[in-house]
């Protein structure tokens, strides 16, 4: 499937996947503190990452705190 991840098109070899599996495929430590994910503009809570199914064409945001005023 093709996803839009943090503004960039990403070709993901799986036809079906959970948010958790996708994050691991991207090399993101899912246990990392301070991580949040939204799919198509809706925040997916960490407890639901393993059960939320991704579909072709969806938009995913993966964010974390950074320095700021």
């Amino acid at each position: 499937m093709v996803l839009k991840v943090n503004g960039a098109r990403v070709h993901y070899h799986e036809k079906s996947s959970t948010v958790l599996a996708f994050l691991r495929w991207r090399g993101i430590d899912a246990e990392r503190r301070g991580l949040a994910v939204a799919v198509d503009g809706v925040v997916v809570q960490r407890d639901d990452w393993h059960s939320t199914i991704l579909r072709n064409g969806q938009t995913i945001e993966v964010v974390t705190p950074m320095a700021g005023g």
Partner: peptide, 8 residues
């Protein structure tokens, strides 16, 4: 302390 939210 304030922090900004940004794409990973």
């Amino acid at each position: 302390v304030t922090v900004a939210m940004r794409r990973l």
